[in-house]
Amino acid sequence: MVQNNSFSGRLGKFSIYTLVLFSGLVCLLPLCNIVAISFSSSDAVAANAVGLVPINFTTDAYSMIVEDKQFWRSFGISVQRVILSLIVNMIIIVLMAYPLSKSKRQFKGRNIYMNLIIFAMLFNGGMIPTYLVVKNLGLLNTIWSLVLPGAVQVFSIILIMNFFIGVPKSLEEAALMDGANPFQVLMKVYIPISLPALATVALFSIVGNWNDFFSGLIYMTKVSNYPLMTYIQSLTINIQELLKAGANASVLENVAAVSNRNLNAAKIVISTIPLLLIYPMLQKYFITGIVVGSVKE
C-alpha cells in the first residue's frame, strides 16, 4: 500500500514537473524565435527556416538600425514620454492620495472628490470626444498629447490612498504638533514610508507608457512624431499585408519587403530591452502591488 502510494506520488511528481517545465517553455520559445529571427540572414527569414537558433548568423539587422534615424527618434520620444509621464503621474498620485486618505471628519470635501474620481473610473466620454478635446487644445503632434490625457491614474491613486490610510495616525499628529504643515507632513512622513508602494505605481506608469501605442496612433498625424511602439506597429502592418495575401505566393516572393522581417524583429528586440533591464524590479513590485492593491476589504 505504502509502496503503491509512493509510486503514484513519484509519477505525479514527474508529471507536475513536466507540466511546469512545459509551461515555461511555451512562454519562452516564441520569444526566442523572434530573437533568432533578428540575428538571421534575411533569406533564411524569408524562407521561414528560422526556429530557435539563428540561421546564417548575422548582425546586419542591428547595424541597419544604428543608422535608422526614425527608429532612434521614436525611441527618444518614448523615453521622453515615459519620463514626463512618470513625473506628472507621481506628483498627482501623492498629491491626490494624501488628502483622500483623510477621514470625512478631518477633511470635509473628501467624499465629493472621491466620488468625482470614482465616477471618472466608471464612465468616460470614449475615444472620440477625448480625441476632439486633445485636438481642440492644440496638443496633436506634441509630446503632451501622450502625457496629459493619462495624467490622473485613478487606480494608482486609490492604491496609494489605501496605503496612506494604513499609516499610523500618531506619526502625522506628532508632525502637526511640531508645527509642520500638511505639505511637509506628506513630504517628510508619508512619502518616505510609502516608497515600496510608490515604486509599484511608478512602475505601472513606466510600463504602461512605454507599451502604449494607441495614443501615438490617434494623436500623432506624422510618422516622425510616433513613439516607439506606434512606429513599430506601423511597420508590422506591412508584414501583415503580406501575410494577408498568404495564399498568393508571388507576393511572398517579393523578398525586398519580406526581408524586412529580420529588421523588424531586431527593432522589437531593442524595444523590449528597457523593460528587460527593469524586469527584476517589475517582478518584485508588481506582485506586491497586485496582492496589496487589487482589492480592498
Binding site: 488628502p99 477633511f107 471618472a120 472620440i128 478635446v133 506628506l186
Partner: peptide, 30 residues
Amino acid sequence: NIGLPYHIMLLPGMIFLVIFTYIPMAGIFM
C-alpha cells in the same frame, strides 16, 4: 485650517480630470 491645503493638493489632478475626463463626457452630446 487643514481644509485649504488639502484642496490645493487636489487642484492639479482635478484640473486634468476635468479637462480630459469630464469635458469629453460633455462631448457625449454629439
